[in-house]
Simulated assay, not measured.
Amino acid sequence: MTDQNPDFGMQDFVPASAAHEQLLDLFEGAEFKVLGEYCTWSDAYFVLHDESATWGIPGSPQLRAVHVSRDLRERTYQADAAELPLYAMAESWLISRGCPVGAIPTPAVRKGADDATRALEARVREAGSRFALLTSYTDDQRAEPETAVVLRARDPQDPPEFRVLLESYDRWTGTHTLSEGGFATREAAAEWWGAWMEEEAPPLVPPASPARGPVFSSLPVAPPAPAVTWSPGR
């Protein structure tokens, strides 16, 4: 974590519309801290941590990916942003908007604990949009904070249809692990989700052929859903 607030470099630029200015205004509060950034003359890419999220809606994503593009000739700018639950997902969202792979350094507070975690994060970071993000829940009230993410395959011929990513943070080492599980049905994924919400989830079983995934789309994340509301019938 840093104490640095974002500097979007908008001096001498005007917004292309009021909506772009209003969006950046949201991130100028003291609660938004820079985790990673990469800037060129025409574009700025940020991963921000919302320190206020832990006191907001339970389970809400705590990361914000922000892209600002500048028109150097017209001296205008446009801004776009997304709420995302995992750092690698925020990086992937920015990569899809032109940020070079590897351009944003991983901060010390987001270091993977092992090779398996780093390899899985690399696949999330660098791949396309085979999966849609259904929901996520960040639980930082546990002894070891965790974030669970549910994904669904866009192509029914791309099994397993549902996947779960689970990030677990180790307060002692300041590192985290990321694991992946595959579920053939919504019911199976929802059963695991419910058990995880009760802190009784079994270990995730990785998909048989993980080389092509998991990957998530840039669709907005669904609101965080507790076990009683994320049901197979929804």
Rank of each mutant, 00 (worst) to 15 (best):
T76K: 13
L63F: 14
G56Q: 05
T76G: 02
R70T: 06
R64D: 12
P85W: 01
A82N: 09
R75A: 14
V68A: 12
T76C: 09
A79Q: 04
L72T: 09
V68K: 00
L72H: 05
V66K: 02
L72I: 10
E74D: 12
Q78R: 15
Q78H: 13
G56S: 12
R75S: 15
A79V: 02
R75D: 03
A65Q: 03
G56P: 04
D80I: 13
I57L: 11
S69H: 12
D71C: 01
V68I: 15
L84K: 00
G56H: 00
L86V: 01
S69M: 12
A81E: 15
Q62M: 12
D80L: 13
V68G: 02
A81W: 14
G56N: 00
R73F: 02
L63Y: 11
Q78S: 15
I57Q: 13
S69T: 13
L84E: 09
L86K: 01
L86C: 09
I57K: 11
S69A: 14
R64I: 04
L84V: 13
D71S: 08
V66I: 15
L72F: 11
P58R: 05
E83Y: 10
A82V: 12
I57D: 05
H67P: 09
R75N: 15
L86T: 07
Q62G: 12
S69F: 04
E83A: 14
P58Q: 09
Q78T: 15
I57V: 10
R70F: 11
P61N: 11
I57F: 04
P61A: 05
P85F: 09
L84G: 02
R73G: 02
E83C: 10
S60Q: 08
S60D: 07
L63E: 09
Q78N: 14
A82M: 04
Q62A: 09
A79C: 11
Q78A: 15
L84W: 06
L63T: 01
R70A: 05
V66G: 11
T76D: 03
H67S: 04
P61F: 04
A82T: 11
G59H: 07
E74N: 13
L72Q: 13
V66Q: 02
D71I: 06
R75W: 08
A79D: 02
P58K: 03
L72A: 10
A82E: 06
I57M: 07
S60L: 04
G56E: 09
G56A: 00
R73L: 11
H67Y: 07
L84D: 08
Y77E: 03
A82Q: 09
L72M: 14
L86P: 10
P85E: 07
E74T: 10
R73N: 04
Q62S: 10
A82D: 09
H67E: 12
P61H: 11
E74P: 06
G59L: 03
P58V: 06
P58A: 03
L86Y: 08
R73W: 00
Q78P: 00
A65S: 11
L72R: 13
S60W: 00
E74G: 04
G56T: 03
I57R: 14
D71H: 12
G56I: 06
L72G: 12
D71Y: 05
V68Y: 07
D71W: 00
L84F: 11
S60V: 03
D71A: 02
L63C: 06
V68E: 08
G59M: 03
A65K: 08
S60E: 06
G56C: 02
